[in-house]
Design a protein around this nucleic acid. Structure first.
Length: 111
DNA sequence: ATTTTGACGACGT
DNA sequence: GACGTCGCCAAAA
């Protein structure tokens, strides 16, 4: 069950492939997996990502608006933002600044 | 087993 | 462009 056995595992794999200092959106991952309209499942997978053996940089995954919608799910209140800022990502009020610039699209970057 | 919700997104109004 | 509704699919109540 290393490779893409199911939709969820794929999400984790893609999430781990996000480069340092870059971010992507749930929908982009879902689209890349062929389930463009199942963006919610990506988010749900992230929630379950804690159960995964390997760590998943869920903090690098935000919604299409570049908004840190899932920050409440993290341990701390602003932990997600802290992690992003630690990578050079500027975040103001849960919103990523210059989102277009740091956006990582698996459809293009990843074949 | 049925209903509700949810780390989203696209479309309609 | 802000707000509302629907669609997708899986897990929790």
């Amino acid at each position: 069950m290393k490779e893409s056995d199911n939709f969820f595992d794929k999400v984790y794999i893609i999430a781990r492939k996000i480069p340092f200092g870059r971010v992507t959106s749930y929908g982009s991952i879902a689209t890349y997996l062929g389930a463009a309209k199942s963006a919610r499942m990506v988010g749900w997978a992230m929630n379950n990502s804690h159960n995964q053996t390997e760590e998943v940089p869920a903090h690098r995954v935000v919604n299409r608006k570049g908004l840190l919608t899932g920050k409440h799910h993290f341990k701390g209140t602003n932990l997600m933002q802290q992690l992003l800022e630690n990578e050079g990502v500027v975040v103001v009020e849960n919103q990523i600044q210059d989102f277009e610039n740091i956006f990582w699209n698996p459809l293009e970057e990843l074949s």
